[in-house]
């Protein structure tokens, strides 16, 4: 209702494909609250690229960290119920694909991991179907993908065509964290040396700063228990990026973003000489490169304001 992506609507590019692909889309709770900057920018980017993300009706929580336990079938109800929704929209012909797109890497991980585990065990699948007797049985043929994978499938030329403001001078370090990559069986890239963000950032003309801290854990939910422990991790990740020449990092996870961005407050408490660094959702930078209305980036929700940096690089107009 209030999503701002409507204000960023542009005509779909004339990429030759007459019909847009309609993919089921699972947002997740965080994207509706603190992670608005990820959702709005990603939807705007997808639209620009001719990918239609159709939000699942009646989706529920992905099941999140709870899917890390494997002895408790109950914990898989939430993710699998979402897969039933995917099956529903697909059966109803509302989408063209049985792969549900996720944006939040945490949701991606929870859904994909659970889906793989349950689909791989006919008995468990039956138990869950029996338990959810008010729903239609889940047949197990829907899949979970991450938006990055969809982007990678697109013709790089078509993406490049949309770049109106090449990121030029911007030195960016992609950050992956854990949930996009691990466990290996469900990860979208090499867990040791992922490059998927790098390839896309390069299409957008950015200067990519690679550094080994890109896969170091952000501290995840430890942030609730001990924010200073997480602040130390943040300090390590960002200082190394800085040392390697980066001016900003990118991520796809609202929790990583929170830990890397908001925890800079605690980092400063402990390390007064630390120089704050903007943390971008990957799609925020894409929206900037595509020249979309900056409103869809919701930079107001970022802790360390990235706008001065963007303006300094001539990537954003004064006053915008």
């Amino acid at each position: 209702m209030t999503s701002e992506q409507t204000s960023t609507t542009r005509a779909a590019p004339d990429t030759g494909s007459p019909k847009r692909t309609r993919l089921p889309y699972y947002p997740g709770c965080t994207l509706k609250t603190t992670g608005k900057g990820l959702e709005d920018s990603a939807l705007a980017v997808a639209e620009t690229l001719g990918v239609e993300l159709v939000e699942l009706p009646r989706w529920n929580c992905c099941g999140v960290v709870t899917s890390l336990t494997d002895d408790d079938l109950m914990r898989h109800i939430a993710p699998i119920r979402n897969m039933v929704r995917v099956q529903e929209v697909s059966d109803a012909g509302l989408v063209d694909d049985k792969r549900v797109v996720t944006l939040c890497s945490m949701c991606f991980n929870a859904l994909k991991w659970s889906n793989a585990r349950i689909v791989g065990d006919a008995e468990d699948l039956k138990s869950l179907n029996d338990f959810m007797y008010l729903e239609e049985d889940y047949r197990g043929d829907a899949e979970v993908v991450h938006f990055l994978e969809i982007l990678k499938e697109l013709d790089p030329e078509a993406i490049a065509e949309q770049v109106k403001t090449p990121l030029g001078e911007l030195n960016v370090a992609p950050y992956y964290g854990c949930t996009l990559l691990r466990p290996k069986s469900i990860g979208i890239d090499d867990p040791e040396d992922p490059t998927i963000q790098q390839e896309l950032l390069e299409i957008m003309g950015a200067t990519v700063i690679d550094n080994p801290y890109k896969t170091v854990c952000c501290g995840s939910y430890q942030t609730v228990q001990d924010k200073y422990a997480v602040a130390e991790l943040t300090h390590g990740i960002l200082s190394h990026a800085r040392a390697a020449g980066a001016e900003a990092v990118t991520t796809f996870c609202p929790l990583c973003a929170f830990n890397l961005d908001n925890r800079q407050r605690e980092v400063l408490e402990k390390h007064p000489d630390f120089e704050p660094m903007p943390v971008f959702y990957f799609t925020q930078l894409m929206a900037v490169a595509f020249g979309l209305n900056p409103k869809c980036c919701r930079f107001d929700l970022n802790h360390t304001d990235p706008r001065p940096l963007l303006r300094g690089k001539g990537l954003m107009k004064e006053g915008a």
Partner: peptide
């Protein structure tokens, strides 16, 4: 509320 496992027992 964050603990909801989407079991739908409440609805039933």
């Amino acid at each position: 509320v964050a603990r909801c496992v989407s079991c739908n027992t409440c609805t039933k």
